[in-house]
Design a protein around this nucleic acid. Structure first.
Lengths: 154, 154
DNA sequence: TTTTCCTTCATACTTTTGGGTGATTTTAAA
DNA sequence: TTTAAAATCACCCAAAAGTATGAAGGAAAA
């Protein structure tokens, strides 16, 4: 528990400690050089510089990098020998707003599986498959699974 | 040229100016409060805080936000289609002993028609279509019309 | 001529599919 | 933080599909 606390706040602890050490140093410097009235401005300047440096360092250390996700589309050529089924995919299906899961159902459906078999294969209930297929038919503008298959193979 | 310089280094100029202003302020403060020896530490502390804040602010303002770019490569499948070869010719169908009428049903079935629609198109009753399709499934060794379609398109 | 197959159709029953609605949870986006 | 979409599942109901069995007329083959 305590070690976790230390690990989590390591940076802050280090900073606090070094700050304390610095204050001691300053106190020491005070008794050594402050007598020279001329050195006062230098002293102030030194403090300013040190703390500003500290501030900059702190800020740079503590700011979390913003994560910017860049999605790069890499074209991958797929040579289709005798599978016109999935040409439909990227081009048309995305336009119709067919989700990934619906696509899964569609593929298994066109493979001739029953809703029950699809449910087993996808580890979901029969009702879920029905819901997906219903929405699928809506989006594909068909009435039956056989028509959906036709649209896929057309 | 000069304006561009100002625009580019606007922040630095602002910072420099405000730093100068602050020094004037400090100088002024020096003559007002430094006499109180007791206030010396407070003075130092104030400077430390001000400059550290300044440093933090400066660091946050001047540094370009750390951007950790995560490149996610998404494979975009480009289908280079060759010849889809799907002809379930008469020879194969005849081998399976599929009759002419059954073939009619099969074709309409694979076109996505329902049994009722097939019945209307062929001018026979629904029961007849069912009989044909049942025998069809037997001969094709499938359980569903979707599988029959698959076999046709495979 | 008997047999076989095709075609047609019916009845009865079961299974599968599809529509509609609504709830919950998760995930992604604004 | 709020909103929206996706994914999950349930329940009910209706339509479609599929199975089993039987029957009858017609064509072709044994």
């Amino acid at each position: 528990m305590l070690t976790i606390f230390f690990a989590k706040n390591k940076l802050i602890i280090i900073y606090g400690t070094s700050l304390a050490a610095l204050l001691f140093l300053l106190k020491w410097l005070e008794y050594r050089f402050v007598i020279i009235s001329n050195a006062f401005e230098i002293y102030i300047g030194a403090i300013a510089v040190i703390f500003m440096t500290l501030g900059i360092w702190l800020a740079l250390k503590l700011t979390k990098p913003k994560i910017k996700t860049v999605i790069v589309e890499v074209e991958k050529e797929v040579f289709v020998t005798s599978n016109p089924n999935f040409v439909f995919n990227e081009n048309e299906l995305n336009k119709l707003g067919i989700s990934k899961r619906e696509l899964d159902v569609l593929e298994l459906m066109s493979a001739g599986l029953s809703n029950n078999e699809i449910a087993e294969k996808l580890f979901v209930s029969l009702n879920t498959v029905k819901t997906h297929s219903s929405k699928l038919f809506e989006k594909l503008d068909v009435k039956r699974r056989t028509q959906a298959i036709e649209k896929l193979n057309a």
